[in-house]
């Protein structure tokens, strides 16, 4: 058979593309549930990490169910919105909404011990780094002012520079920092170039060589906490 005829080439490529498209569709559909479950478990691990509870992909779901005792969704007016599942809120989509008032933000409440009433409030963050999105979770003590823990991650910041935001060394700096000043004014937490003073309650050391990621992180914390501001102010003790 002449395999160099134009008609043969057209038919050959058409069949090839159809067969492969069908095969890939089947594979993608079959594997989707497992992939989505992995993403869900990673999110649980991230939330747990922000309250300093270690977990592995295997036990994350059990620990999450045990420790995260309450979740709810708030709007930018600081009110709780009923009928929404905090875990299913996609912050990236919410932040794309043009009208600020329509944006919804999740709050997760963690009770690490069954016996006492210690609670931590976890909020979700999302912003822009140098190369792509950065995101994280930040947990507060019951005063809704002092940071208890946090986790940040990124899609593709520069390794060794901006990518340092996902290291424990960087994240541990945030512990104990405050987001409101003495007059209860919202000031957030800044990343300070050249290093911060030890007793500065509102600043952490920025990353040398990772200025744009540091600034992006600062903007992310400010913008997202700003959305939570009314809720935090109304409920703080």
């Amino acid at each position: 058979m002449n395999t160099e005829k134009n008609s043969y080439i057209f038919i050959y490529s058409t069949i090839m593309v159809l067969v492969i498209a069908a095969a890939l569709t089947v594979v993608a559909l079959q594997l989707k549930p497992a992939q989505e479950n992995n993403i869900r478990i990673e999110k649980m691990q991230n939330i747990l990490q922000s309250v300093k509870i270690p977990s592995t992909p295997k036990d994350a779901e059990t620990i999450y169910k045990e420790k995260i005792t309450e979740t709810f969704v708030i709007n930018t007016q600081g009110n709780i919105v009923e009928g929404k599942n905090a875990f299913d809120i996609n912050l990236a989509d919410e932040l794309k909404k043009e009208n600020d008032a329509e944006r919804l933000f999740p709050v997760f409440v963690c009770s690490p011990n069954k016996n006492d009433t210690v609670k931590y409030f976890i909020v979700q963050l999302r912003g822009k780094g140098l190369w792509g999105p950065i995101w994280g979770y930040m947990s507060f003590n019951a005063d809704l002012n002092t940071v208890y823990g946090c986790m940040f991650d990124h899609k593709g910041e520069t390794p060794g520079l901006g990518a340092e935001i996902n290291t424990a060394v960087f994240q541990s700096q945030f512990v104990g920092k405050k987001i409101f000043d003495e007059n209860n004014k919202f000031v957030s937490i800044a990343t300070v170039k050249g290093g911060t003073k030890d007793d500065d309650p509102h600043g952490v050391d920025a990353i040398s060589g990772g200025t744009i990621t540091s600034k992006g992180l600062e903007a992310m914390i400010y913008d997202c906490l700003k959305a939570y501001e009314l809720y935090l102010t109304n409920n703080k003790k």
């Binding site: 095969a23 594979v27 993608a28 594997l31 497992a34 992939q35 990673e42 992909p57």
Partner: peptide
């Protein structure tokens, strides 16, 4: 693509 999808499903980390 198939290998990539399999890794995402079974070896996510």
């Amino acid at each position: 693509i198939i290998v990539d999808q399999l890794l995402k499903a079974f070896l996510y980390d």
